[in-house]
Write a protein that binds this DNA or RNA. Structure first.
Lengths: 242, 242
DNA sequence: GAGTGGTCTAGACCACTTC
DNA sequence: AAGTGGTCTAGACCACTCC
């Protein structure tokens, strides 16, 4: 069991939504129907649907059924989520193109952000993610070569960079810095930016242990992508706890 | 069964953590221990612990155990910080001008965000914050009149809106949504935006109890203002015994 | 009453870590 | 080998909605 059954069930649903078989507000098959169709236990279906509910993909009403959520939730800045899941939650279909995958050495600015020396060897990746054939995210990444020596052997169009890196070691620390900026030439071309439109740019650093292992810039068309942070009561209470 | 069993189990754990019986990094009882101690099935314990993991309260490691997580989001964005504190932290001098302070009734879009009816009476504020005599933030706010009837009697150039509101009742929930946008006429004029430059706009909603009490838009010149989120999970093995 | 989701149980097999 | 969490099953009872 490399991939859990409930993940397969989740993917089954999100794929169907992305394919347009269930539009916003449409009623999804009931739990028992899914149990029969997929030959899994009800608890497994239930877990899949429960997670989709928490991710904002569907809405469930007791005694009525499950429905595709019409609201498009904003990705949360306080977590790292696969761009594929984000697009799925928006009801779109994801595709990815690898624009560059090569090696480089850190320059002065990059070394500063890596909290390391100039010249540290890294991999350089440039990925373009599409939502329904429209570019939504330009992903520029630098990854320490000594952290993931086999990185370039992966197929980035299939498994997300996040999955690949997380399989090596879990992220111990995360930083997002968000800015509104005028797009540079690379962003204008790849994201097909209309003249004058700004980009929402997120600089992400991830740590494993006490070492910065990746540095990335995620650029999005300002008119089609927002990010959110929401604190629930538990978090606020926890934050005040001595 | 008014309250689900797994909620009771979650509560049992969080209460014990809050009471200090398990400090940051401390090892929690195993699933089987909890099954015996609380006389519930393992699936119920498992669900409780899984949700606590999702909420960031604990960290689980297969083959090892469950541990209290210290990783609390403490980002700029995940808290309500007074703009004068932010400017002070940047080394600047703060000043504030009140551009408008009047009353209004919610329109359809606003009512949607307030999760309430059209026509609910609110106060409307428009404040401009300066850093060293340059405008840095345009603050547009709507505040429920029934939450703060005396709001307009305050001097907003002296006490921040946050201080005034927090004195009435503590915030129970908070949401920030960040976007990059082209400035509207109001933003261009007040923020003295150079032609073509985007604004970084933060939409903030705050709850008291289960009611949205304020809705605001904080706009900043894109080239002079960024927001950051940083999460610091701690090393599991660093913290041992409570 | 039929159908839905919400929850719970008692057991099972597995992967992983530690000794 | 022992203990841990990760997952899965086949049943069960319940609250709720709709007809």
């Amino acid at each position: 069991m490399t991939v859990p059954l409930y993940e397969t069930v989740k993917r089954h649903i999100t794929d169907a939504i992305a394919a347009g078989r269930y539009g916003p507000g449409a009623k999804l098959p009931s739990e028992s129907e899914l149990v029969n169709a997929l030959s899994v236990s009800r608890m497994t279906v239930n877990r899949a649907l429960r997670e989709l509910t928490r991710d904002g993909v569907i809405i469930r009403v007791q005694g009525v059924g499950s429905f595709v959520n019409q609201a498009r939730p904003n990705p949360n800045l306080a977590e790292v989520r696969d761009i594929r899941d984000i697009i799925a939650a928006r009801g779109g279909r994801h595709a990815c193109r690898v624009l560059a995958a090569d090696t480089a050495l850190l320059d002065a600015d990059q070394a500063d952000l890596f909290e390391d020396a100039i010249g540290v060897p890294v991999f350089h990746l440039l990925l373009l993610h599409f939502e329904d054939d429209r570019p939504l995210q330009l992903e520029r990444r630098l990854v320490r070569r000594d952290f993931a020596p086999d990185l370039l052997s992966h197929d980035f169009t299939q498994a997300s960079l996040f999955e690949i890196l997380h399989a090596i070691a879990p992220i111990s620390e995360l930083e997002h810095v968000v800015e509104a900026a005028l797009p540079d030439d690379e962003e204008i071309g790849n994201l097909a930016m209309p003249a004058g439109q700004p980009v929402l740019r997120i600089r992400r650093r991830t740590w494993v242990g006490h070492r910065v292992v990746t540095l990335g810039w995620l650029s999005h068309p300002g008119d089609r992508y927002r990010v959110a942070v929401r604190l629930r009561p538990e978090d606020i209470r926890a934050g005040q706890r001595a």
